[in-house]
């Protein structure tokens, strides 16, 4: 592992997700996650950021999102912050996948499936989503 903490900032632009995915995947592998686990956790993070862009900021570009990466000996902690309106109460309770033909609604279920812990808090004007994956 060559880095223990990294702050990634991006605008609410879906075209930036490719960059973010490459960087997060590299960080996951560098932290010691195997390829499949790295891919899973990366997917969870990208889904969370995509939700922030699509649902939080309603697809409007130019709004700030930060992804704070912290790696400890036994786990990776991710903190995703944005300044969008708060999501619906209890949105992290949607653990079940929607029907196979549904065109959306899998994001939260995938986030929960690919993380060991997930929590949300509204702090001031910010949404703060914390995701953890054990190493």
């Amino acid at each position: 592992m060559t880095t223990s903490a990294t702050l990634l900032t991006l605008e609410s632009d879906p075209t930036r997700l490719g960059d973010l995915q490459s960087r997060v995947d590299a960080l996951c592998r560098d932290a010691g996650l195997e390829a499949v686990a790295a891919n899973e956790f990366t997917t969870a993070i990208i889904e969370a950021v995509a939700n922030s862009i699509r649902h939080g900021y309603r697809g409007e570009p130019g709004h700030p999102i930060t992804v704070h990466w912290r790696c400890a000996q036994d786990r990776i902690d991710i903190e995703i912050r944005d300044r969008a309106p708060p999501p619906p109460a209890g949105f992290l309770d949607h653990r079940d996948m929607p029907p196979p033909a549904a065109e959306s609604g899998r994001g939260v279920a995938m986030i929960l499936a690919y993380t060991d812990a997930a929590s949300y808090a509204r702090i001031g004007a910010e949404n703060v989503l914390n995701l953890t994956r054990r190493l």
């Binding site: 060559t2 880095t3 990294t6 490459s22 960087r23 590299a26 960080l27 592998r29 560098d30």
Partner: peptide, 16 residues
């Protein structure tokens, strides 16, 4: 052994 972050992604990366 495997190791190290790819080049060109992050500043201030330490390589071993």
């Amino acid at each position: 052994a495997a190791g190290g972050l790819p080049f060109g992604m992050f500043p201030d990366v330490d390589y071993e």
